[in-house]
C-alpha cells in the first residue's frame, strides 16, 4: 500500500496537468459561440431573424434575399409586381411563375375547404383598408367591392391565371408561410441540421437546437407587451404560425378594427378568437389554417385542426381562455407562462 514518493509525485503532476488541459478545453469551448443570429427589418415591414449554426451563418443573406424577392413579386399593393399585374389584367390570361401558381392553387383549395371563409381574392376589399391610418374605408366603396370577391371565379391553368374584371388576389395571408417553406427547402438542400427562422412572427424550427434540446417558441400574448407570452412550445422540425387580431389593427370609437377581413361583409371578421397558433410541418398550410381558424371562431376551430393529420393548435379566446388541440401538452409540450395568468 505504501508508495514511493519519487513515483507518486510525477503521477500526481501528470493527473493534475490532464485535468488542467481538460479545463482549458472547457474554457475554449464555452467561449466559442455555436450559433449566430442575423436580423433584418425589410421583409413585409416586419422584423425577421435567422439563427443558424455559426458555420452556416453566411446562408442568412441568401434566405433574406429569397424572402425579399418573394415579397416584391407577391405584393398586391405594388402594380408592377407579378400579383399586381395579374390584378390589373382586366380579365385577360396572365402567365405566372411557379411560386404564384403554388399559392393560387393553395388559395383556391382552402377557399373550398373553408366554405369561402379563407379567400385570397379579397384584394378589392383589403386594398381599401389602411390599418396605419386609423380610419375606415368609405362604406359605398366597400359595398361595391364585396361582389368582386370569390376565389371560385379564379381560373388557373398550366402556368397561367385569369381573374374576372375588377377582381384581385391578395396573398398577404400566405406569403410568410410560403417564404418559410422556401427557406426550409434551401436549408435542407445545404444540409443545415439546425435553424430557427422567424419571419415577422411566423417561425420555422428546423431540427433541434445544437445542444440537442427542442426549440422553445413562445406564443405571443394577444394585446400584451412585445415578448409577453401565453406559453412556450417545445418543438422540433416544424413550423409555428400565428394569426392574431392584435397585428395590424386600430381602435376607433372603442371598437377594434383588425386586418383579418370577412369577404362576406368587407369588415374585420367577427370572431371570438384573439389568436390562433398552428403547429405544422408546412408553414404555408399552417398560414391558411391560422386565418381559417380565426374566421371560423373558437368552437369550430378546434374541430378544423383536429381533422388535419399531425396538426396542433393553441387558441386564445376573447374572454381570455386557452384552448388546445389534443397533442398539445403530450406530443408537443406547452409550458404556460406567467404573462397569461
Amino acid at each position: 500500500m505504501n508508495r514511493s514518493p519519487t513515483r507518486a509525485t510525477p503521477l500526481a503532476a501528470r493527473t493534475i496537468l490532464l485535468f488542467g488541459i481538460a479545463a482549458l478545453l472547457c474554457v475554449a469551448c464555452a467561449s466559442t459561440p455555436q450559433t449566430e443570429t442575423r436580423t433584418v427589418f425589410d421583409f413585409m415591414d416586419t422584423v425577421s431573424t435567422a439563427t443558424l449554426p455559426a458555420s452556416n451563418i453566411a446562408l442568412a443573406d441568401r434566405l433574406f434575399d429569397l424572402c425579399r424577392d418573394l415579397d416584391a413579386r407577391l405584393n398586391a399593393h405594388d402594380p408592377s409586381s407579378e400579383v399586381g399585374k395579374l390584378n390589373a389584367a382586366d380579365g385577360e390570361r396572365v402567365n405566372i411563375s411557379s411560386d404564384v401558381s403554388t399559392l393560387l392553387n393553395i388559395g383556391k383549395e382552402y377557399f373550398e375547404k373553408s366554405g369561402g371563409l379563407f379567400d385570397i381574392t379579397i384584394a378589392p376589399i383589403s386594398l381599401l383598408w389602411d390599418f396605419s391610418s386609423n380610419s375606415l374605408p368609405q362604406s359605398n366603396a366597400l359595398a361595391s367591392a364585396i361582389p368582386l370577391v370569390g376565389a371560385d371565379r379564379l381560373e388557373l391553368g398550366g402556368g397561367w391565371a385569369r381573374l374576372p374584371v375588377g377582381f384581385g388576389v391578395d396573398l398577404g395571408a400566405l406569403v410568410k408561410g410560403y417564404a418559410l417553406d422556401r427557406c426550409a427547402d434551401t436549408l435542407r438542400a445545404e444540409g443545415v441540421p439546425s435553424a430557427l427562422i422567424n419571419l415577422g412572427g411566423s417561425v420555422l424550427a428546423l431540427g433541434k437546437r445544437l445542444d440537442g434540446n427542442p426549440w422553445r417558441v413562445g406564443v405571443q400574448l394577444p394585446f400584451g407587451a412585445e415578448g409577453a407570452t401565453l406559453g412556450v412550445l417545445s418543438v422540433t422540425d416544424t413550423c409555428v404560425v400565428t394569426a392574431g387580431l392584435y397585428e395590424r389593427s386600430f381602435e376607433l370609437d372603442g371598437k377594434l378594427y383588425h386586418h383579418i377581413l370577412d369577404p362576406r361583409t368587407g369588415m374585420p371578421a367577427a370572431t371570438d378568437l384573439y389568436s390562433a397558433t398552428i403547429i405544422y410541418k408546412n408553414a404555408l398550410i399552417a398560414d391558411a389554417y391560422s386565418t381559417w381558424c380565426i374566421m371560423a371562431g373558437a368552437e369550430k376551430a378546434l374541430g378544423i385542426v383536429e381533422s388535419a393529420d399531425d396538426m396542433e393548435c393553441v387558441l386564445y379566446t376573447a374572454d381570455g381562455s386557452l384552448m388546445f388541440s389534443s397533442g398539445i401538452g403530450s406530443a408537443i409540450p406547452f409550458e404556460l407562462t406567467g404573462d397569461g395568468l
Partner: peptide, 8 residues
Amino acid sequence: PAFDTVAR
C-alpha cells in the same frame, strides 16, 4: 431565456 423566439 424563456424562449428562443416568439410566434405572433
